[in-house]
Design a protein around this nucleic acid. Structure first.
Lengths: 150, 150
DNA sequence: CATGCTAGCTTTGAAAATCCAAGCGAGATA
DNA sequence: TATCTCGCTTGGATTTTCAAAGCTAGCATG
């Protein structure tokens, strides 16, 4: 485990992911997209400078995290909307992990403000580790390890 | 969902987490600590500039992610080692989520290089969403939502 | 004592990233 | 035509990161 983190070809998937998603505002954009934001102004509202937002949207579209669709509302000019791709949706566990960690270890007086739920029933869910046969494993038993070259 | 991301008191736990962990190299340091790195030179080996590493170690210790212990090997001067705190260990799902996402969506010719396993048995595990009673839920059904103020 | 070694920083200046504020352009409407 | 508004674009300031060199302190050795 000794990658440079400077090239997308890094051997480490964490480093590769952070190369794309580690710049300021990128994951916040994904978070907003999960929450239903699609238009430039939606994302802009989180406080990101517009030139940075432009750059991040291009980068996330290029990487396949967001998809850009032209649309035109009646009476308005043609614009683009940005929606999560399947790869973008697959970032949900990353966001959920930050929600759970931030809620527990960086608490605020307002308490819990976000949570992961099933969209259809609104049932609360949380992340856990499971084995191949679906058995839940205690997180204290888990580590991350290098796969031996075969 | 409209936080500024500029203050640790942000209402959004993702924003709060990213305020601490979103700076370049922070999560890579946590990753190295998970892999057993404890000393300055261990972390330095991933390619992080030494002044940045110094700053990040201080920040992660201040935030309670890492704990700094003085130690002295025979024949060497007093030094510090940095080990994961419980809060640091609780970041494992964040790292695992990046491992899984990067492995699948940013593949490299070398294929899979990292995985999450049980430390005692080496059994492969992965992240999943579970309900309160431990039932595994399909990720496609999950979203992240704001908790209504009570 | 002096000297050497090395790890963990510290410093300096350059490069890159982010930010702020203003401006521009294009498409719609009147 | 003029006006409005949204999605950028621009210019300069500020902050962050980087590379390279240097410094310091504690250990060992002679």
């Amino acid at each position: 485990m000794n990658p440079t983190g400077l090239f997308p070809e890094s051997l480490c998937p964490i480093a590769r992911s952070l190369d794309l998603l580690g710049q300021k505002w990128s994951l916040m954009i994904v978070r907003e997209a999960v929450g239903g934001a699609t238009r430039f102004a939606d994302f802009r509202a989180i406080g990101i400078p517009s030139d940075i937002l432009t750059k991040r949207l291009i980068s996330l579209v290029d990487a396949g995290v967001l998809e850009k669709h032209p649309y035109q509302a009646p009476g308005e000019r043609a614009r683009d909307e940005y929606v999560l791709s399947p790869a973008g949706r697959a970032l949900l566990p990353v966001l959920s992990a930050f929600v759970e960690w931030g809620t527990e270890y960086l608490p605020i007086p307002a308490g819990r403000t976000l949570e992961s739920v099933t969209a259809d029933t609104g049932e609360r869910v949380q992340l856990a580790y499971i084995t191949e046969d679906g058995t839940v494993v205690d997180q204290d038993r888990v580590t991350i390890t290098t796969i031996q070259a075969e």
